[in-house]
Simulated assay, not measured.
Amino acid sequence: MKAPMGVLRDAFARDLALAAVLTVVAQVELALADDVEGPRGWHAAGFALVTGAVALRRRAPLAAAAAGAVGITMSTLAGEVPGPVAPLLSLILVTYAVASYSSMRRALAGLAIVLAAILVYPLVARSTFGDELGNLVIFVAIWLLGVAVRRREQRAAIAEAEVARERAEHEAERARAVRDERLRIARELHDVVAHGVSGMVLHAGAARQALTTEPEAAEASLLEVEAAGRQSLGELRTMLTVMRVDDTMPGDLVEAAVERAREAGLAVDARIVWAPEALAAETVLAAGRIVQEAVTNVVRHAQGATRVVIDVEDVGASVRVRVADDGRPSGDPRPGLGLVGMRERAAALGGEVDAGPAEDGGWRVEALLPRGAS
């Protein structure tokens, strides 16, 4: 995971400041040191190179390690300087950096370069095996610490990316849930409004035709319009109640659909064999809406329909719904929102809806819904 450019600039500025401080300290140490072997200018250049490498420890870790190793080697070959701290600290920093900020291949190359520079000292000066082994152990330990920190940060970055991915998936799932809920509400509103308005339009048309010749019939039709409007409002309240409370049982929409078919002048052959209170609320609601939508389609689209068959039966693990009429389909034969809504409603419960021409003429809608838990 790459850091933002602003963060990198700030880190480089801090490294540059640290390198400047270490450079000043190293030169002061050299100026105050006694018994310096070899030319001081050569030592000063070597110290400046190793302390200046700190400025690149994050931007170019391998180059910083190489520069530090060259600087230490220059000073070692020039002669001995008693007790310099800043150059040693700078070499430790670039060793840690090459392990912490590089790939494993570059980190190993950086370690090899630093250890090679350290091993130059016993070649030109007298030192014990214990001293050199101690130096090697110190720098290897610093390098291993850098590798451990790098791996920990990588694991943290992977974990952070996983959390971000899960959060994005959760947001996407929530967006899908909101979209599905909007579609469900649209279907519910379509069912209620289409069913109620179609009945109102039917009775309003009858009232208009009888207004001048049969005032009493016109008044009766207008009363039906009023009753249909009141019923639609009641169904809207029921729908909103069911949306708010999952375990609220909806009204008996099947019986209401049967009554609406009779009011439309259709001969109704109804066989209702179920106990809604023993079924899951969503199954009862889906069955009622399917019957209601199918009856509405008969009233609105079936030309010449005089009879409708409505069967709702609890058959053990399922509820079977069938609505058939003897009319002729009119208009666009393709399924509209009503039939699509039936199928989606059934599919959401694990059921299915089949619709098409009946064998004896007319149109039929058949649904099989899972019974669900009461």
Rank of each mutant, 00 (worst) to 15 (best):
G6L: 12
L8R: 09
A11C: 12
L18S: 13
A19H: 09
A20D: 11
L22Q: 04
L22E: 02
T23F: 05
A26W: 04
V28K: 11
D34S: 04
P39R: 13
H43I: 06
A44L: 09
V50K: 06
T51P: 09
G52W: 02
G52H: 02
L56R: 08
R57K: 13
A66E: 11
G68N: 09
A69G: 06
I72P: 08
E80D: 14
G83L: 13
L93W: 08
L93F: 05
T95Q: 01
A99V: 02
Y101Q: 15
S103G: 15
I113K: 09
I113G: 00
L115N: 01
L119R: 08
A141K: 08
W143S: 03
A148R: 08
Q154L: 10
I158P: 03
E160G: 11
A161G: 04
R167F: 11
A172I: 03
A175I: 01
E181Q: 13
R182E: 14
H190L: 01
H195D: 12
G196F: 06
L202H: 09
A210P: 07
A210D: 12
L211Y: 13
E219T: 12
R230C: 00
E235D: 10
L236V: 00
L236W: 05
R237S: 04
T238R: 08
L240D: 01
V245S: 15
D246L: 07
L253V: 05
V254Q: 06
A264K: 08
A264D: 01
L266R: 04
I290N: 07
Q292D: 07
Q303A: 12
G316V: 05
G327E: 00
R343Y: 13
A346T: 01
A355L: 06
P357D: 10
G361L: 00
G361E: 06
W363Y: 07
L368F: 10
P370L: 03
